[in-house]
Amino acid sequence: MRIDLITLFPEMCERVLSESIIGRGRKKGALQVCCHQLRDYAHDKHQRVDDTVFGGGKGMLLIAEPIAACFDDLTETLGKKPHIVYMSPQGRPMNQTVIRELSQYENLCILCGHYEGVDERVLEAYVDEEVSLGDFVMTGGEIPALCLTDAVGRMQPGVLAAQECFEEESHYDGLLEYPQYSRPQVWRGHSVPDILMTGHHANIKKWRHQQSVLRTAQKRPDLLQKRSLSKEDWEFLEQQNLVEQSQN
């Protein structure tokens, strides 16, 4: 997969995406990430990419032509148009379902807005969808774009050690992840659950699933409204006196 970021701060993005798991994935060729300086596509000597807003109002707006020129250049380089995402508080909220969908594209381009946003005409002409990190406003789209790149990038084959590394995590299957423990077996008087020391894989798998259901019911009962639980799951929650809470 190739991900292209269009930004006013490519050095900032490169620094983050060159570290840790994503950085290692890039180095071994499991993921390609390219950061483009929007100012390189400006048509004046001052590399200006913003202007005042028609109709009045405070702040500046990213103008259409440099963004369109960057999109056109990228499309020519790739030989086809990538799936273009604009990071915006008006977009659909980022969650694991969105991440799974976006991870299926061969080429993904992420536009980072700034100032008061982006000229609406270039969004209408090029952008396939808008995605939001949450119901709040940030100074720019770089941090949301980095979050999206990290979440999508780690799902690409070869970036993580094994597919199970993300398939068993919170939100992947609609449930929160079960609690996990490491050495020592007893830490400050608190012991690892006995079942994890038995080596009985089937029982451990069942316990982990039940803990995921329990943790979701306790912390995010709203998620259970979107996921079908088995009869055994509901019986387990009833034993924990959590059925009524989970159904509300």
Rank of each mutant, 00 (worst) to 15 (best):
N107P: 00
A162P: 01
H36P: 03
D51H: 09
E235C: 12
E164T: 06
A162L: 03
L74Y: 01
D135E: 13
Q96S: 10
N248P: 03
T75D: 08
Y115G: 08
D194W: 01
V33T: 09
Q156H: 09
H83V: 06
E130L: 04
L102M: 13
E120C: 05
V122R: 05
L108G: 09
P82G: 12
W207R: 00
A162S: 15
A125Q: 10
G153S: 07
L38E: 05
M138V: 13
E76Y: 04
K80D: 15
Y126H: 15
I63V: 15
Q90A: 12
G59Y: 03
D73A: 15
L102P: 13
Q90D: 02
Y105C: 05
P221C: 11
V213Y: 08
K45V: 03
E116T: 12
Y126V: 04
L74V: 15
V98M: 12
E142G: 09
R24E: 11
I21G: 06
Q225I: 04
L123W: 00
L214N: 00
I67W: 06
T77N: 11
N95H: 14
D135N: 13
Y41F: 15
R227M: 01
L223I: 06
I63P: 12
Q211A: 11
W207F: 00
T75I: 09
E164P: 00
P144D: 02
K205D: 14
K81F: 06
R92Q: 09
V53P: 00
K81L: 13
V127S: 07
P193M: 03
Q245G: 01
Q90I: 11
M12Q: 14
G174Q: 10
Q247V: 12
R24N: 09
T7N: 05
S132T: 07
L237R: 11
I99T: 15
W234K: 02
E235K: 11
T52I: 11
L223G: 01
Y86F: 13
G140Q: 03
G174Y: 11
D119L: 02
G189R: 09
K58A: 14
K206Y: 02
A145Q: 10
D73N: 14
Y181P: 04
C109I: 01
Y172K: 05
M138A: 11
D233W: 04
S228E: 13
C165N: 10
M1W: 00
Q240I: 07
D233G: 06
Y172W: 10
D44S: 05
V16Q: 03
C35T: 15
Q156L: 09
E169P: 02
N107T: 13
A217K: 06
G141F: 08
Q47C: 13
S228K: 12
Q210A: 04
T139H: 09
C165A: 10
G189I: 09
E142W: 11
L78W: 08
L148T: 02
G59S: 00
D173C: 08
K219T: 14
G59V: 05
I195W: 10
E101I: 00
C34S: 15
T52A: 12
A161Y: 08
A151V: 04
I204S: 05
P184T: 05
D222I: 13
